[in-house]
Write a protein that binds this DNA or RNA. Structure first.
Lengths: 344, 344
DNA sequence: CTGAAAGCGCTTACAG
DNA sequence: CTGAAAGCGCTTACAG
């Protein structure tokens, strides 16, 4: 792959490389005539600058790294986060930045995530879907590389958060408004997000004068229908079973549907359920799933915007969380409580 | 972000930069003692090489580009392709390559995809989910940049193909074995993949002595439940309606389910359906969807493997298509045909 | 075994 | 307005 350089242009024009460089970069101290000649010649020759040479000299790469691996190593296949990535990508590209994935490789060797960033002179990293307690992630978050996280708060770092506490509160209030008092919550495994949602659930239950019962709070894995199914089965076997079950997310909601169907119950006549996320899945379920829709694309965009801001204003980065409110999606899976109904 | 260079090491050790470079790169003509001193000092100082300086000198970047945007600009959110990307990513990283997205930006300017590759010295591109007739894609595929495509054949280029023709044939044969003779096919919009599947459908129908009827072949958009729903409605209104409908993919299958339910029919008692792709969705539907599961992760891996091979053996690249067979997933949505049943 | 030199392609003070 | 020079951080023939 033979490449035209600035030197080829300078020779062809009979000018110095400095002048060519200046003309191409739009400096003002080049005569109009010379500039035009140079630009025309560059076009003729099909000149493309070399990003690496430029990076070496200017110390800018315009490369943004993405850290995107979850526990199951399927970050990209997690529906919610692939929308987030989409948002990061478009916003970054609109600002002239490139997206690349951070990894632990340097040729055949294994290096740390931070070392990978430094090696490739990544200008900033978006920490999206990853175990935040991983020592290497911690190290990266504490380093001098600009970092923005999504749905997790690292000390003195920018972040974009979905409004989990309040979105959950809104969902609980809605369910209550439909007459439900025995509201169970199957939540995902422990994380910042999970804690916020639990907070929203517990506080709102109390606020509404509803009892928060331990047996109504179970844990399952996010986006995992199987574990959620098992948790749902437990709830259904309770002496005094809930009239509504809130689930970790829309995908795992399918597990609840299974358990409920197997128990011979109908949604929402015998029992109500609600999901979380609102990324496609809710539209595919039958009956349609009441859920909280998060604007994953927007979350990604805001993260990229904030990261770029912090890269370009490294001396005073923004560290206040950017909170993105979700939207309650009212559908068919939560129905009114029919007082006298004896199910089964 | 202050960085240690090879020069810092050389000064600290009282050695030349050449020697330091050679020791660090494992050349043999450095004494054991010197090498150890250098390596130890490098570690002490926290030396990380500069990938861009190295790229400039060696002309190797180990960067692989991904072209990943479909018509609706939601490449990353397309379930099937996010698994493909996952496969590409892990295989590439295991071989010491980085993944980055190709785009049309150079700072504030818009450039072509090919120019973006050259500018960033991308070593090869994986063309995954993109409109292949786009002139810029064509230009890239015809350029001197190594390229591997997925589910599309570019002239004299490597590619990885799912075995659409035969997988479809197998699906049709299975449906026929369940007693179906009136098998309709709602296919996606025109593409290499679509043509292969139609071929599999048409040829197998003939092979089985079944009539291929024009009114049984409709088009809808991939992964779009709405258009598929409309197509399904048309089929249901036919005088002599099909007993089984094959659909473009699992997501659009939901549109068919809707149409069928609205018509007051039951799957599979009154009518059978089958999807395609087998990426998560099929497991969530009720009744469970009979489909063809494609190993999207493996497709991605093979694509990365082939691309890297072609990068490292540029003089004799492999151009024979790598074909990945799918797997028939037998579930509940295709039932036996009950001869005497008069529905509705 | 070690080092001086050239050079990858570019940018940017500085001199004229 | 134009150009010579230095240098970004590295690698690699080549000489000693």
């Amino acid at each position: 792959m033979i490449m035209i350089t600035i030197r080829d242009i300078s020779r062809k024009c009979g000018l110095s490389v400095s002048t060519v460089s200046k003309a191409l970069n739009g400096y003002s101290d080049v005569s109009e005539k010379t500039r035009n000649l140079i630009i025309e010649t560059a076009r003729e020759l099909g000149y493309i600058p070399n990003a690496h040479a430029r990076a070496l000299k200017t110390n800018r790469t315009y490369n943004i790294g993405i850290l995107f691996v979850d526990d199951q190593n399927n970050g990209l296949t997690h529906q919610f986060f692939s929308h987030v990535l989409n948002g990061i990508k478009s916003e970054a590209e609109n600002n002239g930045y490139n997206i690349t994935f951070i990894n632990r490789r340097w040729g055949a060797q294994t290096i740390t995530l931070l070392q990978n960033c430094k090696f490739r002179r990544i200008e900033g990293v978006c920490i999206a879907c990853v175990e935040p307690d991983d020592p290497e992630v911690q190290q990266l978050a504490a380093s001098d590389v600009p970092v923005v996280s999504i749905d997790h708060i690292f000390k003195d770092r920018g972040c974009v958060l979905s409004d989990n506490r309040n979105d959950m509160a809104e969902l609980v209030r809605y369910v209550h408004s439909m007459g439900h008092k025995k509201i169970a919550y199957i939540h995902g495994t422990d994380s910042y997000v999970t804690r916020q949602r639990i907070k929203g659930y517990v506080e709102t239950m109390k606020e509404l004068g509803l009892e928060v019962r331990g047996e109504y709070m179970l844990e399952s894995l996010y986006t995992n229908p199987l574990t959620t199914r098992i948790a749902t089965e437990k709830l259904l076997q309770l002496e005094d079973r809930p009239t509504c079950i809130l689930l970790p997310d829309d995908v795992s909601a399918y597990g609840a549907v299974e358990a409920i169907r197997e128990a011979g119950l109908r949604i929402p006549y015998d029992i109500s359920i609600a999901g979380y996320d609102g990324v496609l899945f809710d539209r595919l379920m039958s009956p349609r799933l009441t859920t909280v829709r998060q604007d994953a694309d927007r979350i990604g965009r805001e993260a990229a915007k904030l990261l770029i801001y912090n890269i370009e204003n490294a001396s005073q980065p923004r560290m206040e969380p950017v909170v993105i409110k979700g939207e309650l999606v009212i559908a068919e899976s939560v129905g009114p409580v029919l007082k006298q109904l004896v199910s089964c």
